[in-house]
Amino acid sequence: MTPPDAADDSRWSDLDRPPLNAAALRRGLVHEGSLWREIRVVRSTGSTNSDLAALAQSGEAAEGTVLVAEEQTAGRGRLDRRWTAPARSGLYFSVLLTPGDVPVARWGWLPLLTGVAVATGLSRSAGVDTALKWPNDLLVTVGGEERKAGGILAERAAGDAVVVGVGVNVTLRQDELPVPQAGSLALAGAVSTDRDPLLRAMLRSLEDWYGRWRAADGDPAASGLQETYAAGCATLGRTVRAELPGDRSVIGEAVAVDGDGRLVLATADGVQEPVGAGDIVHLRPA
């Protein structure tokens, strides 16, 4: 990780992209009874998920540790895709969770839970309508077009620890987008792009949903998670193509998210096929 006193350059000189206030974030989030124990903000790193997993492995991080990077140079998405963006143009953070009292079979709900929390937090704090693309993409609408503005990646760490990483494009401009299909909160007309309250809102929402889920022993129905995810999932009701491991693909209507968090596709030959892993391509609007 680059030390905070590293030589400055043009990446850090954009006055429209001020630094996060680490002390204020700690005051707002770390308190008695809170899930969040520690908020670490670093200037630049390769991947907050990799760094936090290493800290967990060495015993230097406990549940409730949050690692935030002002710049992430080797961020990873699903299927080992890269995630890069200009310094301070987004929110890139990872959280350490240890849901040891929840059956491991239900841990697959953690990225979906995080998606619900992120969408809920951003809707309240940024005033932007967001939707979720199964399993863990955050969508916004830019010029009437659906675009990806964020993603989530959950990975097992040491023991019963899970590191959940979140990346959200906040102030990316049109000419800074990595691909034409990308978007940002600013391009979607956010009423606020101040990253401090956006991050606080997402983490408070995540604490709330994680608490509900754990209190229900990870049961997605009893916790309300399954119903809430389905209500905010832009994939349901659409014809999609699931690109599966082994170069296999399935086309069908996405009709449900089942109790294991899998996307259920109704195919043309009348079969309902649950998809637990793979890439989903939306083929037509809802």
Rank of each mutant, 00 (worst) to 15 (best):
M1T: 09
P4Y: 03
S13W: 04
S13G: 12
D14A: 04
L15H: 15
R17G: 03
P18D: 11
N21S: 13
N21D: 15
L29K: 01
V30S: 12
G33T: 02
S34Y: 09
E38L: 05
V41C: 07
R43H: 08
T45P: 15
A61W: 03
V68L: 07
T73H: 10
T73E: 14
R78Q: 15
D80F: 14
A85L: 11
Y92L: 08
V102W: 03
P103N: 01
W107D: 10
G108N: 06
L112Y: 01
T120W: 06
L122Q: 07
S123E: 15
D129H: 12
W134G: 05
P135L: 08
D137E: 07
D137R: 01
L138R: 00
L139E: 06
R147H: 04
G150W: 01
L153S: 03
Q174Y: 02
Q174A: 15
L177N: 00
P178F: 02
P180T: 07
L185R: 02
L185Y: 01
A186Y: 05
A188F: 13
A190G: 00
D194C: 03
L203R: 08
R204Y: 05
W213A: 06
D219G: 03
Q226L: 11
Y229N: 02
Y229H: 13
G232Q: 13
T235K: 09
G237W: 11
V240L: 05
R248K: 15
S249G: 02
V250F: 08
I251V: 14
G259C: 01
T267S: 08
G270A: 03
Q272E: 14
V281S: 04
H282Y: 13
A286K: 12
